[in-house]
């Protein structure tokens, strides 16, 4: 009972609020930057995966499989500690990645693997006839891709896409492991100072949970609205 009271006591968390919630900003920076990478790589690798050229298809498939099947944590440590070493040897210069860069790179790559598959299922769900109608009218492949296929593909998988984006936010809590000063990292710092881990970790959990719950509720609400309008 005593420890429960201690755990939900917000006073310590509140005392360090500017430091702790300032850390939350790093979760958002990492999230937004990784999202850019997720979509750029996810889309371009998806185009490779659906290419008519066998070699491109192989690259796209290998990319998706590699990053979908590697745990984010492993990827994070590998990108932060091993990749700079490899590059140092290769380029004959000492190289270090700032933690933020490693975090964005690792999470971006990991989630772009999923995004390849999401784009693919959205694109493949577009009826072939819609593409043929464009071809029959003499439309260019670029116009067909960007004006007919993609708008429909994204609608097809928008709920799935948004859910993945929420998952990516969840994954940003891993970045404290390589010393990106996010909320959790600052909790560790304050804990070392104050020696009162219970309320700090509990409130960090509550803050994350509220943010993620709000985001997924929003996604669900939007999805239902779209469904009732006949798209997504």
């Amino acid at each position: 009972m005593e420890s429960f009271k201690e755990a939900v006591d917000i006073s310590l968390f509140w005392e360090y609020r500017s430091l702790l919630l300032g850390g939350l900003a790093f979760n958002f920076y990492t999230w937004i930057s990784a999202l850019v990478l997720v979509h750029v790589m996810g889309f371009s690798m998806c185009m490779m995966r659906l290419s008519r050229v066998g070699a491109c298809r192989a690259v796209g498939t290998a990319y998706a499989e590699l990053f979908r099947n590697t745990p984010e944590y492993i990827l994070l440590t590998w990108v932060h500690f091993v990749l700079p070493l490899l590059l140092s040897v290769l380029l004959q210069t000492r190289l270090n990645f700032p933690p933020f860069l490693s975090a964005v790179l690792a999470l971006g790559l990991a989630y772009s693997g999923y995004m390849v598959e999401t784009y693919r299922s959205g694109i493949q769900a577009v009826p072939k006839g819609h593409i043929e109608a464009g071809r029959a009218l003499g439309m260019s492949s670029i116009d067909i891709t960007f004006r007919i296929v993609l708008p429909q593909a994204i609608r097809n998988v928008l709920p799935e896409m948004l859910n993945q984006m929420v998952s990516l936010f969840k994954a940003t809590t891993l970045v404290s492991l390589i010393a990106v000063p996010d909320l959790l990292y600052n909790v560790v710092i304050v804990t070392q100072e104050e020696m009162r881990p219970l309320p700090l970790y509990t409130w960090a959990a509550i803050v994350y949970c509220v943010i993620i719950f709000t985001a997924s509720t929003l996604v669900r609400w939007l999805t239902e609205r779209w469904r009732s309008r006949g798209w997504a």
């Binding site: 009826p127 006839g129 819609h130 043929e132 109608a133 029959a136 009218l137 007919i148 708008p151 429909q152 609608r155 798209w231």
Partner: peptide, 13 residues
């Protein structure tokens, strides 16, 4: 060459 398909193939979006 105009083409009209059995399945209409209008773009739904």
């Amino acid at each position: 060459v105009g083409m009209v398909f059995q399945q209409f193939n209008l773009w739904p979006h």
